[in-house]
Amino acid sequence: MDKFGYGLLGTFVIGAVVGASVGLLFAPQKGEDTRKWIGDKLNDLEGEVEAMGRKLKTQESKAEETLNKKIQDLEKQLGDLLKKSKTAESK
């Protein structure tokens, strides 16, 4: 994450807003055409944000699976160590 705390998604959204604003200032179009263009861009942006959300959810699921597996491995190792410790104490 960058030093301002925006992250990738925040930076993307800010860039999209700035780009759209500059485009509106320099595009000599009728108001109806401009509104259609804005609507199209918002629909595109919505699709991209949804795709990013799905990707993040997938990554979250993979990370959760990995973490659960590591926890299970550590629990097994701890159980093995406890058994060895009890066996060593009884000798």
Results as ranks from 00 to 15, higher is better:
Ala88Ser: 13
Ala51Met: 11
Glu75Thr: 04
Lys62Gly: 07
Glu75Trp: 06
Lys83His: 05
Lys30Arg: 05
Gly10Glu: 00
Ser90Leu: 04
Glu75Met: 03
Glu48Tyr: 08
Val49Phe: 10
Ser90Ile: 11
Thr66Asn: 14
Gly5Glu: 12
Gly7His: 04
Asp73Glu: 15
Gly19Val: 00
Thr34Asp: 09
Thr58Phe: 06
Glu50Leu: 04
Ala63Trp: 14
Phe26Lys: 06
Asn43Asp: 15
Ala51Cys: 09
Thr34Asn: 04
Asp40Gln: 06
Ser85Ala: 08
Ile14Pro: 01
Glu65Ser: 03
Lys76Cys: 04
Lys36Phe: 08
Phe26Asn: 02
Asp40Leu: 12
Met52Leu: 15
Lys70Leu: 10
Thr66Glu: 15
Asn43Gln: 15
Arg54Leu: 10
Leu81Trp: 07
Asp40Tyr: 08
Ala51His: 07
Trp37Met: 07
Leu78Ala: 03
Arg54Asp: 14
Leu67Ala: 12
Leu74Cys: 05
Leu9Phe: 07
Glu64Met: 10
Asp44Tyr: 05
Tyr6Phe: 07
Arg35Asn: 11
Thr87Gly: 03
Asp40Trp: 12
Gln77Gly: 02
Gly79Phe: 14
Asp2His: 02
Glu50Met: 08
Lys91Leu: 02
Lys83Ala: 05
Lys91Glu: 15
Glu32Phe: 07
Lys30Gly: 13
Asn43Phe: 10
Gly10Cys: 05
Lys84Asp: 15
Gly7Asn: 00
Ser90Arg: 05
Thr34Cys: 01
Phe4Pro: 00
Ile38Arg: 03
Gly39His: 09
Leu9Asn: 11
Gln77Pro: 02
Ser21Gly: 09
Lys86Glu: 13
Ala51Glu: 14
Leu78Cys: 09
Leu24Glu: 15
Lys69Ser: 13
Phe26Gln: 05
Arg35Cys: 08
Leu25Pro: 00
Thr66Asp: 15
Phe26Glu: 02
Lys62Tyr: 05
Ile14Phe: 13
Leu8Ile: 06
Lys86Met: 08
Leu45Lys: 03
Lys62Ile: 01
Met1Gln: 10
Glu64Asp: 11
Glu60Thr: 08
Val13Arg: 00
Thr11Phe: 10
Trp37Ser: 02
Gly23Asp: 00
Asn43His: 06
Lys41Val: 11
Arg35Met: 11
Asp80Ser: 02
Lys76Val: 11
Glu48Asp: 14
Asp40Lys: 10
Phe26Pro: 00
Phe12Gly: 03
Leu8Glu: 14
Val18Trp: 13
Ser61Phe: 07
Gly39Met: 04
Gly10Met: 01
Lys55Gln: 14
Thr34His: 00
Gly15Tyr: 05
Gly31Ser: 04
Gln59Ser: 13
Asp73Ala: 12
Val17Gly: 07
Lys41Ser: 06
Ile38Lys: 10
Ser85Lys: 08
Leu45Gln: 06
Glu60Cys: 05
Ile71Pro: 00
Lys55Glu: 01
Lys91Ser: 07
Lys3Thr: 10
Leu42Trp: 12
Met1Pro: 03
Gly47Asn: 15
Trp37Gly: 00
Gly39Pro: 00
Val13Phe: 10
Val49Trp: 02
Val49Tyr: 03
